[in-house]
Amino acid sequence: MTLLQRIRTGAGPEVPGLLAFLAVVILIFSLTADRFLSLANFGSIAYQLPELGLLTLAMLIPIISGGFNLAIIYTANMAGLTLAWVLNQNGGPEAGVWPFVYGSVLALGVGATAGAVMGAVIAYIGAHPILVSLAMMIFLRGLGEFLTRGGDISGFPDYLAFLGHGAVFGIPVPLILFLVCAVLWHILLTRTRHGFAARMIGSNLKATAYSGVHVKRTLVLIYTLSGVMCAIAGILMLARFNSVRVGHGEALLLVTVLACFLGGVDPFGGFGRVAPVVLALIVLQVLSSGLNLLGANQHLSTAVWGLFLVGVMILRWGAGKWKERQKRE
């Protein structure tokens, strides 16, 4: 097996293409923006990536199972609120480490609950995931705004800066957190029965059920895990911005979907891998930081992301056509 084949079978057929894209993007920016190839720039990418990355992981498994989770941002916000509330109850900036620990556990519980409720409605009632998560999103947004009256909550202990801005052996802590989560997700999808079942459910729910797989339990678990991942993202967001506001990260919702599709996840479900999605996230983040150095703002990056996805989809279409013609000849 050649190296290329090894990468294709191990990480997914999209990986070489995305790597090539990444190389091209880096090349172009290093020629046009002089500060692009600097440690500071890659450092800032490394701190920005995890927030979007964790939310994308939360979006990934529902899509693979043939569904969607539109409630990820507000689930993350609610989890952040929970932790913020616990910290504030325990002295705000003076809060010790212990309240942070059980506050985080509580936050994960809130995320899991929101996910489990969605999963249960989807699995046991058979409602469309887009609708269920949309309703959950509207509900959580309302609940969050009701609780915070639309304001910010801030004033957290200093040690949280380590989680948001610290580094271990020069590697940013948020990045470590994200990579650990990505590896866990990869293992979940490729090495566990539930991950296996999630892919099968994404392709054909009924046939999976006929094969003796407990599809309802798996669906509830998928959305619960998605909620837990949102909560991790929410905790990280709290640490990075030293504040919680409902609606924070709202603009990232559709970007996570974009990153999944860019990473070759099948929009109809059944197929998707963590590695190409992580690569897609890196491409998006590098694009954004390069444009930033060239003097463009985040909004131009958003536009470029959208055009980039269209471009990639057109290339995939072209590649498919080309392969078809090759086969015919």
Partner: peptide, 22 residues
């Protein structure tokens, strides 16, 4: 290009909004 509508409209959502704000 035979791309499903949710992918296309999420792309154009980002493109329209980003360009408008920019």
């Amino acid at each position: 290009f035979r791309i499903i509508s949710i992918v296309v409209t999420i792309s154009t959502f980002n493109a329209f909004f980003g360009l408008l704000m920019f």
